[in-house]
């Protein structure tokens, strides 16, 4: 995939498939020399057997094909960039994925359009509560869908054009305030 934001959207789809209600996404431009992102959910989690096998593309829970590319893909990309993919998961509690990439590695894909990924994620799974943080060494921005639900109450519908258009504008302006210009 061309952008890390597409991997983030893809991995968040796994959280949805795992029945998660809460998803926390953190992007850090510079964590001790690594660009990192993490996705934590409260979905069904994985057994220890599954955790051991999940980096293998020929292991999958899907029923339409006998290959699952999402995790093997980001596992490979992070290793090609001098990093790694950490997987922590407890059955019935949830899963935490964290991908590390050397910040200055020439092979690191750009982050790309993270705002579009978040907008599409929320409009496609409007029941999710998402906490999204974008940070670097000096600045940090967090968006929490609970804040929107507090203002809108039962009118908080992330599939409504007015709401997802607001989310897009709000995220774009606030991430631009934090993001290092080399990451744009």
């Amino acid at each position: 995939m061309r952008e890390l934001s597409l991997h983030i959207l893809d991995l968040a789809q796994n959280s949805i498939g795992a029945g998660a209600h809460n998803v926390t996404i953190v992007i850090d431009e510079d964590e001790a020399g690594f660009f990192t992102f993490s996705i934590k959910d409260d979905g069904c989690g994985m057994s220890e057997d599954m955790i051991r096998q999940v980096r293998d593309p020929f292991v999958t829970t899907r029923k339409t094909r006998k290959v699952g590319m999402g995790i093997p893909f980001i596992d490979m990309v992070s290793q090609q960039c001098g990093g790694r993919l950490e997987i922590k998961s407890v059955e019935d509690e949830g899963t935490l994925l964290k991908a590390y990439f050397e910040k200055d590695n020439i092979d690191r894909p750009p982050l790309g359009d993270i705002v579009e990924s978040i907008k599409v994620l929320l409009a496609g799974a409007p029941w999710l509560d998402v906490i999204f943080t974008y940070k670097n060494k000096t600045k940090e921005f967090t968006f929490d869908t609970q804040e929107v639900r507090e203002v809108l109450g039962d009118a908080a519908d992330f599939t409504n054009p007015e709401v997802y258009s607001w989310v897009e504008g709000y995220l774009r302006q606030n991430i631009a305030l934090v993001q290092d210009k080399e990451e744009r």
Binding site: L6, L9, D10, Q13, E116, S117, G124, P161, Y164
Partner: peptide, 26 residues
């Protein structure tokens, strides 16, 4: 929106749908 869909451009397509529905107020 599987991995195959996203790799082929599903995010951009869905975003275009969302934007067009917003513009047309559908």
């Amino acid at each position: 929106m599987g991995t195959c869909g996203i790799a082929a451009g599903a995010r951009e397509v869905m975003s275009a749908i969302l934007d067009e529905l917003a513009v047309r107020k559908l």
